[in-house]
Design a protein around this nucleic acid. Structure first.
Lengths: 223, 223
DNA sequence: GTTCACATTTAGCCTACCCTAACTTTCGAT
DNA sequence: ATCGAAAGTTAGGGTAGGCTAAATGTGAAC
């Protein structure tokens, strides 16, 4: 626990944290899929992380982060989100392509560097995708915004956050103006998971059509 | 050769480059000492790097970088020196403590990030310790300045470069004002490798005494 | 209440990179 | 010309973290 965590361990903890954000225990196969590893490899690491006290493992029933495990995961998430913000704001990185760079750097930067970057940015509370940045002591704002997919026709909402996993998706969203703080109005939608139609930029905005899978990645606040 | 180099390989190449800067072939034991590894470990890696075409190995007689090996090493050196410069200039890092951070980051940053940092700095040609920064295409200025240890009494010189290996040494040098561009006058020295006495800041500067080992780490240009 | 598909774990193996201990080569001193 | 210290290499082994294939547990459907 006191020894520095390996890159691999940090990635496991971060992934498990992300999975347990929405839902109870994380399944072996979910972890494997997100990390692009064989399930058997996950089982092996999970046993080690349970051993070291970072998580609880109920065989055949998934894992749950412990207090220390959650703290370690949040430290990685903080590094990642500060890095993304810094790269975009200070070094002109693209909203869509910054993820990969941060993914590598989050395992190499020291706490000192992260704090210097945070300070240079004015201690931001959200990253450019709208995700809350954990504090140094591992506190994180619980943003349980509904997704655009849940909005009914006529709803007026402000875009709060977009999932940052997929650069392609991000590029598409940006091209539509679907970025944090954008105002949206739902003008039409099909039943049974069909596409949803929204005006981007308020009542007078451009209309566009968005599939359900995509809409589920967009978190909004009612206005 | 086309696959990305591991952190370990990059460190070997960088170390071997640094060793071959001053002197022909690098010895196994020198590499081991600089990297804090057992000599046997070095032999093993050296064989692999010779296999992959990064260096030539004459058993029992040391190694020499090949063209591709030298290019790969210079890429690491460029990353390191741009990083050090960026951390100091843009993030307020200490001249003395920046080395360790750069040592980790140099294996994680992409070429794109390095180039963005270089651009933000105005494409510097020297890092804060005075070391020349290789270009993108692996060209590096041959700075064969003499060391302060070689200067005779009365010599007037400008400080050009200090070795950046040891943070403690750097802190000491900085406390004396021995930083790049400082003007020095040698006022006295003992024969047979005794300490050397210099005025720091020109004729009117503070006098201080410097041991030979330290003076050998300070490169100067006659004025 | 069986069954069966699927999730999970176990077993055994592999690569990268490090180690120590033992052996071999080199080269300067005699 | 030889000998021995120091340098280098080989042999054998360890850890971390992946993999595949085979065995086993789970739970929904019948």
């Amino acid at each position: 626990m006191t020894a520095p965590l390996s890159r691999s361990v940090e990635d496991y903890l971060k992934t498990i944290y992300r999975l347990s954000e929405r839902g109870g225990a994380a399944a072996t196969s979910e972890i494997a899929q997100r990390m692009d590893l064989a399930p058997a490899s996950v089982t092996g690491m999970v046993k080690k992380l349970a051993e070291s006290g970072h998580l609880e493992h109920v065989p055949y029933h998934g894992v749950r982060l412990t207090g220390p495990g959650r703290l370690a995961a949040l430290a990685v998430v903080r590094r990642h989100r500060i890095l993304e913000t810094y790269l975009i704001v200070k070094l002109g990185y693209d909203w869509a392509s910054v993820h990969e760079e941060a993914e590598r750097l989050e395992h190499a930067v020291s706490d000192e560097l992260v704090e210097r970057m945070a300070e240079a940015l004015g201690s931001p509370r959200y990253d450019p995708h709208g995700a809350p940045i954990p504090t140094r002591d591992g506190e994180i704002e619980q943003s349980d915004y509904p997704s655009l997919a849940q909005m009914e026709v006529g709803a007026r909402v402000e875009l709060r956050q977009v999932d940052d996993d997929d650069p392609e998706r991000l590029r598409f969203l940006k091209s539509l103006g679907l970025v944090p703080a954008a105002l949206l109005v739902v003008t039409d939608r099909q039943p049974f998971g069909g596409p949803i139609r929204v005006k981007v930029g308020g009542e007078e905005g451009e209309e566009c059509v968005i599939g359900m899978a995509l809409a589920a990645c967009i978190l909004v606040e009612r206005r």
